[in-house]
């Protein structure tokens, strides 16, 4: 392993460096009952930022002379509204705030990826915090919290719109009609469960991979002085590309939420 020479500054090998960076700062006994404090605190901070923006903007916005911040928010709200209008059948007062929240919160959490990988953990080291993962969406708990919340809403609206019997009917008769009921149950169950799993894993995978590549790029300069040039070049290119990735992943998560909830709002089609 030529790259495992050493991160001399911290006395860590490359593998240890990466493992260190992928370690959550958590409390708990292990297994499920663990709280990842870094994930929680960073997502709360970003949620707080969003709440602050939402509250102040909601209070001071004017219909006649919108200021810069209001224009940006109006553009985002209008964009989300347009997506809902295009995709979502009927109307639901929850879908708008839900989609907007997903878009902005996921975007902000993803955007933590653009902060240099070592900056916040190193600052943490200075005040005695030894483990810190700054991007909440590189934690499966975050992405699945969102995905499972959406999944719960999918089930709720399926039952609310189609009725409990309609929902069961969807499982029984859905893809192939009434003669292949066992296959139907299997297919529909897979289809439904695939929704939250794909939602959660897509976001997690993209952000985790992005973070990992940032770490590998950071290792370039750490291993030798010759790596410093490539580190800067590759880091810049990857960061610019990552701006696209973080917006796209936030957008996809929002869009699929609207699509899935839209499907839940459709009356069952008779076979």
């Amino acid at each position: 392993m030529s790259s495992s020479t050493a991160n001399e500054a911290n006395g860590l090998t490359s593998v240890e460096y990466i493992q260190h960076h992928l370690h959550n700062n958590s409390i708990g006994e292990g297994g499920f009952w663990v709280l990842n404090l870094d994930t929680l605190i960073y997502s709360w901070l970003l949620a707080g930022v969003l709440m602050y923006i939402a509250y102040t903007m909601g209070k001071k916005m004017t219909p006649d002379t919108p200021s810069g911040g209001q224009n940006v928010l109006e553009a985002i709200v209008e964009f989300v509204q347009q997506q809902i209008r295009d995709i979502f059948p009927g109307s639901n007062p929850l879908i708008g705030p839900l989609a907007l929240t997903i878009f902005m919160w996921v975007f902000l959490m993803n955007a933590m990826d653009l902060i240099p990988v070592d900056l916040l953990p190193e600052l943490g080291q200075l005040v005695g915090i030894h483990y810190m993962k700054v991007v909440p969406t590189t934690d499966l708990s975050t992405t699945f919290a969102l995905a499972l919340s959406v999944f719960a809403l999918i089930i709720y609206y399926n039952i609310k719109i189609k009725g409990p019997i309609g929902y069961i009917k969807m499982f029984l008769f859905h893809p192939f009609g009434k003669y292949l009921i066992p296959v139907n149950i299997l297919m529909t169950a897979i289809e439904e469960i695939a929704k939250p799993v794909s939602l959660g894993l897509r976001l997690f995978g993209n952000m985790f991979a992005g973070e990992l590549i940032f770490m590998l790029i950071a290792l370039l300069g750490a291993t030798s002085l010759l790596g410093l040039g490539p580190q800067i070049a590759l880091g810049t290119v990857w960061a610019i590309f990552h701006i696209l990735v973080i917006s796209l992943q936030a957008f996809i998560f929002m869009l699929l939420t609207i699509v899935y909830l839209g499907m839940a709002h459709q009356e069952i089609d008779e076979h």
């Binding site: 709280l35 929850l94 708008g96 499972l148």
Partner: peptide, 28 residues
């Protein structure tokens, strides 16, 4: 996946409610 999930779900629910009440509602 850890218990962080539960915390994040609660955060998400509160955030959706808050943004719906103070931003989405008034702004739309």
């Amino acid at each position: 996946i850890t218990a962080t999930l539960i915390g994040q779900m609660i955060t998400f629910a509160i955030l959706v409610w808050f943004i719906g009440k103070y931003l989405w509602g008034p702004m739309t």
